[in-house]
């Protein structure tokens, strides 16, 4: 496969090489800035070929992303980024195709394209900026807003139950799902790098802060004071430990998880569940996706990362197979096929 080769260029690159000449226009303090910087840093570290990379987006604050990347870019219409990206990847599998989108864009109006892209395992990377609110339309609740939230369109509190994007994606058999927070650039870079290497659809949910309409919604897991007790950073092959003093962990209790304290009741690290991101079975990843505060910590990192053929590869190998069998297409022969007669 020449993919990695064509996407790698020799000279050392810096974040600047991936910055376009357009002024970035997000609100000051918006979490999107950190995400943009992390993506650009990741690309610089990987030495990505700008000319071979396409950023595709839908509508929303996050969807302005392509304008700020010095790569090819396509700012499409509300909800449809995954569908457009699918077409791009099928047309030219050697392109590196990334989707920048938001919770409204991908889980509401674009929910259908989102789940079907994942189901097919098309080789695109989907970065969802989840701020649990509509920013660009000025503050209505989104499909990930917590129930009861007061917004412009729900002055008496929202009634809708919210999606857990991880469960949604895993339900569609996601081959790669990871969750990060916009306040941890190092973790973002690490996860984006893993996503970049994944064959098939890689979905990264980024818990992003909207300072204007939903400030501090992810506070419990981003705030310095609280975050270590409230987040569980998953690492493949490592026990599920968390807490400021790294003294808490997860064990199985019947069919559910249970939080335990190390040292209590003779529990040691050896008793804890060990994360296995490569499990064929979806069950562990799905159970992790159900963990929410306050009973459980919020898992971050790669939940699932399994190898499956990418859709575009399957398309090409099917075409190749048919060509081997039938020979390359011959228009004259095709037009003259079926029952013909001479007058």
């Amino acid at each position: 496969m020449t993919e990695t080769k064509s996407n790698t260029v020799a000279p050392k690159l810096s974040r600047k090489d991936y910055m376009s000449d357009q002024a970035v226009k997000w609100c000051p303090g918006c979490g999107d800035y950190a995400i943009l910087a992390s993506v650009q840093n990741t690309f610089a570290q990987l030495g990505k070929n700008r000319d071979n990379t396409v950023f595709v987006s839908g509508i929303g604050c996050s969807s302005r992303f392509p304008y700020y990347m010095n790569t090819y870019g396509f700012h499409t219409i509300h909800g449809r980024a995954a569908a457009v990206a699918t077409g791009i990847k099928i047309a030219n599998p050697s392109l590196d195709v990334w989707v920048a989108t938001g919770d409204g864009d991908s889980f509401s109006i674009g929910g259908n394209h989102f789940i079907h892209a994942i189901r097919r395992n098309i080789g695109i990377k989907i970065l969802v900026f989840n701020n649990e609110i509509y920013g660009l339309t000025k503050g209505q609740y989104s499909p990930t807003s917590k129930q009861g939230v007061v917004t412009k369109s729900t002055p008496y509190g929202s009634l809708d139950r919210s999606f857990i994007p991880a469960s949604l994606a895993l339900g569609a058999e996601a081959t790669f799902y990871a969750r990060v927070v916009d306040t941890n650039p190092k973790h973002m870079t690490e996860i984006f790098t893993a996503a970049a290497d994944h064959k098939g659809t890689a979905f990264v949910e980024i818990l992003q802060n909207c300072v204007i309409f939903n400030d501090k919604t992810h506070r419990a897991i981003t705030d310095k004071e609280m975050r270590d007790d409230n987040q569980l950073v998953l690492e493949h092959g490592k026990p599920m430990i968390f807490g400021k003093n790294r003294d808490k962990g997860l064990v199985m209790n019947g069919c559910d998880f249970k939080v335990v304290r190390l040292g209590e009741d003779g529990i040691t690290e050896n008793n804890l569940l060990v994360h296995d991101a490569h499990r064929e079975s979806l069950n562990l990843a799905f159970m992790l996706s159900r963990l929410t505060l306050p009973e459980f910590p919020v898992p971050l990192g790669i939940f699932r990362q399994v190898a499956r053929p990418a859709y575009e590869e399957q398309i090409n190998s099917q075409i190749q197979e048919i060509k081997n069998k039938k020979g390359a297409g011959d228009l004259k022969r095709l037009l003259n096929s079926g029952g013909t007669w001479v007058v």
Partner: peptide
Amino acid sequence: KTFQAEDEIAGVCAAIGASFAG
């Protein structure tokens, strides 16, 4: 390359993406 999409919108949007890509 025939792509039976999840809906009419995805069908045309994927076509637009493919067109962008040549």
